[in-house]
Design a protein around this nucleic acid. Structure first.
Lengths: 349, 349
DNA sequence: GGTTAGCACTCGGTAGAATCGAGTGCTAGC
DNA sequence: GCTAGCACTCGATTCTACCGAGTGCTAACC
């Protein structure tokens, strides 16, 4: 997956009022119709009392400044990524239909079950609301403290390590011992692990016993397996909803393929979302997120917190000509309601 | 999702040798080219020494008997589901390239990690091998015996119930108590739960204490939450690999959409696979599996066992004109190797 | 100077006609 | 029973003409 350098500054200085109106009209209409937009329809729709000819001359200016592009001579104008960016940056906060608002409220009033299930369903909800593919990311439990460690024997050579975190997450790891571990060994190792790890986090490193008896070996093995957890995927979980939307929202089999195959790579998705979030954006349009393969996509993200701490994010993936007002509003409302829901449950469903 | 009655008997009585050869030639060529197949190419390719005209008259017969169809007059023939069925039923066992065989062996020689990860990667492997979308289903732990039950307190009102099964699976459930549970209450409840549930299975029902003290309430809550596990999804896990293949393998956005949206519904996928498996088939073609929406798909399944007991299945989803010999061989080899891998690990990775 | 009406020009999209050709079904003869 | 021959069908391709939405430019207008 080719990664291009990221443009940090948006370089969207304000346009004069009329250019802005025209740009916004073009973007809005193109989002609506998926067609290049001509000067006359802009002249009529936007309530500036000027002739198409005037609009045209403004359009060439906007084209020179990089906000618009022309698929070919004698076609209308189409927004560039920069054009969309301006549009998004100058959006007055959108609204959701009250029917949709109710839908969200009802959802959160009625969900129950494990956090994982709630997050998966939230992802589906967001996708249904917007008709785009939705992504919900749950932050890693890297800095949640450990509440319980338990080693359970499957048989003499196989043990399962189960760790419960303060955020309610549970992880398991399988351990294969190199010698036959007695029931007592395992129980004792389990006891020592608790003593060792309780209240620490996955990020902290602990002193392991250096003895070479069976129990110490088990303990060392368990601790090392836990610490090995980090490098791969940081323990984030990804929940994708409405992946079938990809097929209806993008045109061109090739694009659909590419986007789907990116969605298959959870690590990539997590990185992407965190990247955007880290840059303090709520939308990344086209080339902005730096993934060549997603150059025809826009990504909307909204953070989710628990007790004020970052706990994940919700995201939406659509074409650059996505319905920003609605999508932004939906993402905002869902992330906010999800945050409240998780807070209300003390960090766990 | 409309469900049609399932055809149980295949009704594929043998055809005479020449018809069979012709039918097989048509199917093979159509799988290869995706085009309707004409009489002359069959006459040349298959080594029957007859003229196209003869082939033609056989073809009308095959059409009457329902093995072939004509998209329109003056086009070649295309196999029907029944035609594919005959082809599959009379397939001499296919072969995999030795390169692919090595790929599979290398994979299983080198995978490590949790079963879940292994299964997910196996799914990706199978998809890469075949260029179709792959599904790996892990059977529910409904009749694995319980090795350990633990109740962990998040805070006074929230507990996490963690259960470890003999097959190495770990499940968790969140519990909200209606009163403040002390640390001692939780420890005691945990102890009692162990006494109650150890060596039982999720399917068995146990006698819960009828007292109304705090501990008993916790215990009842925990047990009921466990038993409630069953009805929804039976605890099966689904791992889908290469969903992006859908976009390149089916034509028509609508089909892609439908197939993707079915893959989103895990319950449906599990049912489908188990259904096919239950009918003792290894392939379900077009209308055979009874899902209207998948009428242009073929599904290949192969069971996976642990110690001879059913433990899940691997599956492939492709168009009815999929490359059956290769796909069947790949599914067979992967399921067999996976079975061996899981057996070798004593039922757990 | 900014705005506008007028106009010639561009060029993608569509509709229709002509044609091609792969493939069929039928029939008569071997 | 097989096959050569033949008329016929019908989707796909190509070509042409043409329409019209939209542009850029210029000259006049306020």
């Amino acid at each position: 997956m080719a990664r291009r350098p990221v443009t940090t500054s948006q370089n969207t200085k304000d346009l004069d009022a009329r250019k802005a109106t025209i740009l916004e009209a073009v973007v809005a209409e193109h989002i609506d119709t998926a067609q290049p937009v001509g000067s006359s329809s802009v002249a009529h729709s936007a309530d500036l009392d000027v002739s198409p000819a005037t609009v045209r001359s403004e359009m060439v200016a906007l084209e020179h400044e990089g906000y618009l592009a022309q698929p070919h001579t004698s076609a209308g104008r189409v927004p560039t990524d920069k054009g969309y960016r301006y549009f998004v940056d100058h959006l007055k906060s959108g609204v959701m239909s009250s029917a949709q608002q109710h839908q969200v409220q009802d959802f959160f009033a009625n969900v129950r079950g494990e956090v994982e299930d709630v997050l998966q369903q939230t992802s589906s909800l967001l996708s249904r609301l917007t008709n785009y593919t939705s992504v919900v990311v749950r932050a890693s439990h890297g800095h949640a403290s450990i509440l319980s460690v338990q080693l359970v024997s499957l048989d003499a050579r196989h043990q399962v390590l189960v760790v419960v975190f303060s955020d309610g997450a549970v992880i398991k790891h399988s351990i294969m011992s190199t010698y036959d571990a007695s029931f007592e060994d395992v129980t004792e190792a389990s006891r020592q692990l608790n003593a060792l790890l309780l209240t620490t986090t996955l990020e902290s490193r602990v002193q392991v016993p250096s003895r070479s008896d069976n129990v110490a070996t088990l303990v060392r093995e368990a601790v090392s397996v836990l610490h090995a957890e980090q490098p791969t995927l940081d323990g984030e979980q990804v929940f994708i909803g409405g992946s079938s939307r990809v097929a209806e929202v993008f045109d061109g089999v090739e694009t659909v393929r590419t986007v789907l195959s990116i969605l298959e790579q959870e690590l990539l998705v997590v990185t992407l979302i965190q990247d955007i979030l880290g840059r303090g954006l709520s939308v990344a349009i086209g080339s902005e997120h730096g993934y060549e393969a997603l150059s025809s996509c826009a990504v909307i993200v909204a953070p989710v917190t628990i007790d004020g701490e970052p706990a994940g994010a919700v995201g939406l993936l659509g074409p650059t000509r996505m319905k920003y007002p609605e999508a932004l509003a939906a993402a905002a409302m869902v992330s906010q309601q999800l945050t409240r829901h998780l807070d209300g449950e003390d960090g766990l469903g």
